[in-house]
Each structure stands twice: as C-alpha cells, then as structure tokens.
Design a binder for these strands. Structure first.
Lengths: 222, 222
DNA sequence: CAGTCATTCAATCATTTTATTGAATAAGAT
DNA sequence: ATCTTATTCAATAAAATGATTGAATGACTG
C-alpha cells in the first residue's frame, strides 16, 4: 500500500476507489442502494448474487468508502455513504455513453429506438405537475415506493400495469419513472402505455437523481 | 462481453470505463495528459514506466474511450478525449479524499500540515490579478508552460526558484500553481517562498481545472 | 441454553490483469 | 534500399481478483 513515491501512493488510493466501482455486480448493487438502505439478503436477491458473494462485494465497497453499514438485530443494512457516489456514477455513465460504441449498441438493441422515448426533465415535470396536467407513475416495486416517491405519484409495478389501465385518465399525459437512467421498468411501462393509446413519457433519470437534485420526496408513514 | 441480462451488459460497459481508471499508473498518465497532448515516449519517461508498458496502458484507456491518439511522423500523441474525464477524476478524488482515512494520512505525511497551505480560489485570483496585486508563479517545467499557462504568469521551475528569488517583489503576494490538486510542485514552491519571508499561497487545483472552468489560458506562439 | 437465521470469514480454484521481454511495424533519415 | 527511432504486438511469468463452498459468528426466539 505504501509506495516509496508519495504521489503514486495517493493515486493508488484513488485507484482503489475506482476499482471498487469497476465491476458490473458492484454497480448493480450501488444502483439498488441508490434507492435507499437495503439488507444484504435483499441486495443479494435483487442482483441474483449468492449471499456470500454479495456480502464480499459490499465489504469491498465499504473499505473503499463508497457505502456504510449498520447492524440492526439479525440484519445488516448497507447504504450509500452520500450523494457524491451518485455524482461519480453519473460521471462514469456520461463517459461510457459518449465514448463507447458498444454501449450504444446495447442500449439500442435493448431499448429499441431510444429517441422515441425522449424523457421529460425534472424541471418540466415539476412545473406541469403543479397544474395537475400530468399523471405521475412510479413503476418500481411497492417496497421501494414506500421508502420514498415523487409527490402525487401513483404506484403501479409493471406486472400490474396492464390490468389497471382503467385507472388512468386517457386525456392526461402519463410520466413514468423508476430507479434511474438504466432502470428498464419505466421504458417498458412507456412502451405498454403507448401501445394502448396513452400519451406517455419517461422522466429523466430516476428517484435517486430526483432526490439528489433537492426535489421533494414523499415517504409513507410506517 | 454480451451477458444474457442486458442491464448487466450495460453495467459491464460502465465497469470497463471504471476499470481503465482503476490503476495508479493510468491515473498518473491521465494527470500528465490533463496538461495537454503528449507522445508515448514523454509519458513513459514522466511516469517512469517502460515504453511498452506505458503504451499498453494508453491503449487500454483508448479502448475504454478515455483518451485518443494521432500519429504524426514517427510519434504517436495521446490526449484526453475531453474535459469530462477531468470531472470523472475530480469525482473520484472527492470521494477518496472524504472517505478513505489512508488518503488523509498520505496527504498529511507528504504535505505536512495541509491547512497552513490553504489555497486561493480561481475567482479570487482572477479578481486580484486584474488589479495587479499578485504575482502568479507557474512552477511547471518549461515545455508544459509553453503549451499553456495563466495570463501574466511567470514560469520558474522548482529547481530554479531559489536562485531567482530576487525577481520577486517582496511586497506582493505570490500565488503558485502547477498541474493539479495533487501536483507536488506548487506545495514545495510555497514552502520555499515562505521560508524566505515571501507571502505565498497555492492556487486551488491547477492548470487543467483552470482551463476546464473556461478561464483564459495563454499559449506561446510556436 | 439450544435452535435458528443473517451475515461474515477462510480456503480454494479459476480467471483476469499486469509487467517484462524480445520481435514486428511504421515512418523518417542516410 | 538500409538504418534508426518510436511504437505496438505477442508470449510469458507473476500477481491480483472473483466465485464457491462450508464453517464460524452474532443476535434474536422459544
């Protein structure tokens, strides 16, 4: 850890932080953590990792100072150390998106034509929701919704969406959001809604970014 | 490269970008590149890597979209793809600085007491330099100075500093800068100047950040 | 206190990454 | 053309990292 050259030692520290980001599974864990605190078990389940493996990745990130944990009874809950982690991930994403051709290919093949899913900005949504012009749709699972959601949002996990289309006002535009810029749920929700003739768009990014922008978040009382 | 799960594939791309940052030598190369274009030979020399090794690290970063290169005659010149790389490095540094105790230790042991070297902000320097109150001192090597420096700056590489102290006006405060927040040169310059009774401070960060902030940079005609 | 559950630890194996070496290219220079 | 110089490539050896397994820990429950 301690090199003879102090500048190199310093860069080695920065590299250690970068290294703990430099793994698909760990980024996935961070995406989950961006929603809020989670136990190891839940994280392992959502990312389809074994418990032991998830635990090790989480500890790795803890040592690097990306996440923190606390024990409560039998469970250990992990959380992001603070919102600067979101900044770091956003900077990473910006570069990956801009520069790596492969990313574009993946985005395109998965999200079909991304352009037709132009998102609405946070500022615009905030303004239009004040005048009651839009229906805000949160397509995340119920437990994530309960932990925090946009004011006035309706929670309808993707699986229920098709059954509950009657609840929407066909005259209003629907803005769907989910976990973040690469959460699939809201893309799929918009696709379903449009197929049924609704006017629907995605919100740019997702809840963690909304919260990080200092905008209001509603938490259900426990 | 292509996982069955598209979200994971996407994260794997982001991870690839992070991975190419996650190495002390590569961060060092990037710090050099933040100054401007450099040939492989110069980069290898400055970072004390073998040519082949430097070349491989540079190619790795090129594949990840962090740097670009061009051939001119016998030389291959590398450069940062754009300033978003500086943002990424800054985000990394912020987290490493805040969260990793080891970094503090390294900074302290190397820079002694950092607090006594409180830097001056870019805004303040800009303002005070307009009224001619300060001497701006660039302590980088001459070739880097020639490629771009702050308006009105005097170039005096560290080695020459002690011999040329007579050139300074003892009544004026001296603001030293160099390559960036972890470039050692300006710290040392301030230490030397203060020991000789001059009023001296560092500029926050360094030239790449000054340039990235959209502030004026002077290039010597070739 | 024994039992159960969530998490971590330790050991192992497989995989990936890094540095080094010497040969291969590519572009002037003689 | 041949020589020289700058860079890249290819092969190898050394080191680090990741996943899996089963045992160990810590904390609640009956």
């Amino acid at each position: 850890m301690s090199t003879r050259n102090p500048k190199l030692a310093l860069f080695a520290q920065f590299a250690a932080v970068a290294k703990s980001l430099a793994h698909a599974h760990r980024l996935e864990l961070l995406e989950q953590l961006a929603q809020g605190e989670r136990s190891v078990e839940v994280l392992a389940d959502r990312t389809r990792l074994s418990i032991a493996n998830a635990s090790q990745h989480l500890q790795h990130m803890r040592r690097a100072g990306l996440v923190a944990n606390r024990r409560e009874g039998k469970f250990v809950y992990y959380r992001l150390i603070d919102d600067s982690i979101l900044d770091l991930m956003a900077a990473l994403r910006r570069i990956a998106e801009r520069n790596v051709a492969e990313v574009e290919r993946v985005i395109r093949s998965y999200f079909h034509n991304r352009d037709s899913l132009e998102p609405i900005s946070r500022a615009e949504l905030l303004q239009r929701s004040r005048t009651g012009e839009v229906t805000i749709l949160d397509v995340r699972p119920e437990d994530e919704f309960a932990l925090g959601h946009l004011p006035g949002a309706v929670n309808m996990p993707l699986r229920e969406l098709e059954k509950r289309l009657a609840e929407f006002d066909p005259a209003q535009e629907i803005v769907a959001y989910c976990r973040g810029p690469y959460c699939v749920l809201s893309y799929e929700a918009v696709a379903v809604l449009r197929a049924r003739g609704f006017k629907a768009r995605r919100l740019e990014d997702g809840l963690p970014e909304w919260r990080a922008a200092g905008l209001p978040v509603v938490t259900d009382a426990a």
